[in-house]
Design a binder for these strands. Structure first.
Lengths: 223, 223
DNA sequence: CGGCATGTTAACGCGATGTTAATAAAATGC
DNA sequence: GCATTTTATTAACATCGCGTTAACATGCCG
């Protein structure tokens, strides 16, 4: 969950974090953010301090009542001492002072997620695809209790497809990300792996990996 | 544990922290601090970055090998980005830039201690694995009253596998944690120990240590 | 029709791992 | 101190399976 009223900065951050593999939901004020938190499922919050409708401290306090464990990071333009104090009392995990460095934010996120290791893994890396459950951390694909262990390449590829479920991913994007190279042979190798994944998913006809000629592939889930 | 070569600052901090109810031990260089860590029992470390004999980063890394869970805060005069990055990679929990505010330090300490309250793994040293009971403290593996004493390496490795039961644990993670080195030979040594553990567990077919090629191992318990 | 992209299956090579034994190092006993 | 035992590393050889590559089939578009 990201709450930021400066939409320019907000979208920039969403873009950056999604690039890094996170799934991000952006809210622009404290009120709707809180409603969103009640309904949705979040692992992690980044809140601006100054927000319309409800300020960041109040929001954090209300969120912590619902879920005391959830990590919260504050974005703040002010580096005032009393603000920080107030935050630490509520149980805020960290501060980042604007203007901040994106990499620093990323490291803080990882540091905090690592600390709360157990809750993270339970949710973060498991994808539901039709009747299948794909556990990326454990490279496992499960359906009806039938488990199949995937190879490293298979699971990297499937993860990329999942993160872009129902959207096209370009061949070159996959190739540079996984093979680090997009020559002819890497391309053929990719096709072989797509073929393997299709076979694994063949028991569920509502799942398909479709080819978009000359462009890439789509993982379609019509369940 | 407090490590600070500027003794004026050091004693000031000790005084302050003891006033706040902590029991503090001060070291003035990285070398003696590490020796002290090996012998004593600490819940929490505050390290200066610039230290005689051994710098703060190296010290933190060595401490984290002995106890990956222990919280570490760095004191640093420099607020340089690359320093922070380096720290977060090691798994440092927070930074405080000198000159700092004592109350801020106190709040950070409380924030971090609150966080690490739940995962008090340090004490939980008995694991149930299928029909076996593994007592890490006593390096003992028991089944049907049959006790077998494990070697140090065997039990360290088994503990790591247990903490990640039914989850993949990466080779490199094991190697850096136990062998402190992940070259070719350490890797082969790991394989030898995996082989030994498998033999010990062979009486119970519902336990298996599976290999995930190129990635690591997973202790599967289907009992 | 012919070229090009993709689908699929099979074979191959090589690196990673499994296992046992030999050697070195360290701890223990006396 | 020396002998014995225990532990960890290194070596040596066997095996496995991942990913690549090849080979052939299919379909699309000019």
């Amino acid at each position: 969950m990201l709450v930021e009223d400066d939409l320019n900065l907000g979208f920039l951050l969403v873009e950056f974090l999604e690039l890094k593999g996170f799934s991000v939901k952006l809210y622009r004020d404290g009120q709707t953010a809180f409603t969103g938190f009640q309904n949705g499922h979040f692992d992690f919050c980044i809140l601006d301090v100054m927000l319309p409708k409800m300020d960041g401290f109040t929001l954090a306090k209300k969120i912590k009542i619902l879920n005391a464990q959830i990590p919260v990071i504050f974005l703040t333009a002010r580096s005032l001492k009393e603000d920080k104090m107030k935050g630490y009392e509520i149980g805020v995990d960290d501060y980042i002072t604007k203007p901040f460095d994106e990499d620093e934010l990323l490291y803080k996120i990882h540091a905090i997620l690592n600390r709360s290791k157990l809750p993270k893994f339970s949710e973060e890396s498991i994808f539901q695809i039709g009747l299948f459950r794909f556990d990326f951390q454990n490279q496992q694909l499960e359906m009806d209790g039938q488990k199949r262990r995937l190879t490293e390449r298979e699971s990297s590829l499937l993860k990329m497809l999942c993160l872009n479920k129902n959207n096209v991913i370009r061949r070159e994007q996959i190739l540079t990300a996984i093979w680090g190279d997009n020559d002819y042979f890497a391309g053929r190798s990719l096709d072989v792996f797509i073929s393997k994944l299709r076979k694994y998913f063949s028991p569920d006809p509502s799942i398909s990996i479709e080819n978009v000629p000359k462009v890439g592939f789509i993982l379609q889930d019509n369940s």
